[in-house]
Design a protein around this nucleic acid. Sequence first.
DNA 1: CGGGGTAGTTTTGTAGGATAAAAGTCGGAA
DNA 2: TTCCGACTTTTATCCTACAAAACTACCCCG
Lengths: 245, 245
Amino acid sequence: MGERRMKPVRAPRRQPGSRVHSELAAGIGRRILDGTYPPGSLLPNEAEWGQMFGASRTAVREAIRTLNGKGLLVSRPKIGSRVEPRERWNLLDRDVMAWHRAALDERTFLLSLQEIRRILEPGAAVLAAARRSPAQLAALERAFADMQSAEVSSEAMVEADVRFHLALLAAANNELLVPFGIVIEQALASMFAYTTSHAVHPEQLLPLHAAVVRAVASQSPEAARKAVTALLDDTDETLVAAVEA
Amino acid sequence: MGERRMKPVRAPRRQPGSRVHSELAAGIGRRILDGTYPPGSLLPNEAEWGQMFGASRTAVREAIRTLNGKGLLVSRPKIGSRVEPRERWNLLDRDVMAWHRAALDERTFLLSLQEIRRILEPGAAVLAAARRSPAQLAALERAFADMQSAEVSSEAMVEADVRFHLALLAAANNELLVPFGIVIEQALASMFAYTTSHAVHPEQLLPLHAAVVRAVASQSPEAARKAVTALLDDTDETLVAAVEA
DNA sequence: CGGGGTAGTTTTGTAGGATAAAAGTCGGAA
DNA sequence: TTCCGACTTTTATCCTACAAAACTACCCCG
């Protein structure tokens, strides 16, 4: 403390996830997702977690409260905290999905994500084409433009790609579709990490997206469905190629 | 396992939701969902919530930790807790959906739920028909049998109906579909409350469900999709009739 | 006169202790 | 034997104190 403190040029801006209770939530959450504590089992009590992580009981309790809210466990006096059955888990939660992903092999995880996309996105595209607002269309077009100007297989491309699909979901104007965005984010991020340029038709990416934009712009639900389906078919090809490689 | 030992009917069995911090989470959560504190706005600080609800700061903090985990807000020292943009909200969470439902008119809520079902369930049915396990088929058949033996428009019927559709989702063998079960639960519960026997073809309910069971049993994906779609068409008719009434 | 660092201020974050309430277990008395 | 009440364990709640973050504003020094 008596030392002269050098101030870094940029404030560290620690993530909100670097708090003690977040670390604890992640630590416990991961152990649940990876099966260390299977559904129905009893967790160590709060004092024990505190010792394990060198944290106070207060911090442990806040972590457990978080996991509670995500449906991973329930706590009762004298009993302790018991892991809930998997069907209660909120797998679409950002954190839970991250822990889940870490506990699974990348391939399995990616395939199940992609499967969800095949179910959801065509339906969302139909709705989007039918009732997107001008602003929502503009957001979609902006994301597409950013994809065009991004380098192939770059971070920027993935970011714009994600934004494209989120914009499509948003344009469907059904709020309950929005939480699914996490699936798309994870799927594309995971693809980027896993299928390092196994793309079968890399030159098809932009035309396929362009077709979606056209369909949504011209408010043609069926065309939108087909365009999105074609897009997902292409993604599937890449995925299969990467899995086999 | 001495079932001879008849225990007197144990009284209260207070819900885990009756805890102080849960009350607080619900109180704050509702105020966020109903727009009292719109996205981007700053919430009262912890001490103020404590006074409002007559609770300690500890309880308030645990409540806020819960809401934090559901994506409704983020907290930072010196700043306070700020409501997150809607697209971060975990609308598929049980609690969040309940608060959301309370803040919306029943009709709008129900229509958007039904829309999601139309997107998801046919796709789930295809997967279920393709790869359900014998046990999963049995669960589906059990739910159907319970529907048959239940009184029309009874609590038991709704419960079996929900179980039927959850079993279908589960049979798709993609964990990420499971969290959607909440949509079905809410939709059917809401239908039950809202469309008190406006059913257009009440006699069709069981045959329509029977067709789904047959398709899944015979592992016919396309038949399953059609059967589920027909089922949803029927539900839609009931819904429209109720909305117009 | 201006810029930058620094002290102050507010709010959340963490710690630790004390007590209450829940929900089992077990033993003793009617 | 049966039932009731102490005992026990664990979470639930409250309290107090202090640490850390991040914004404000001012003062010192060039």
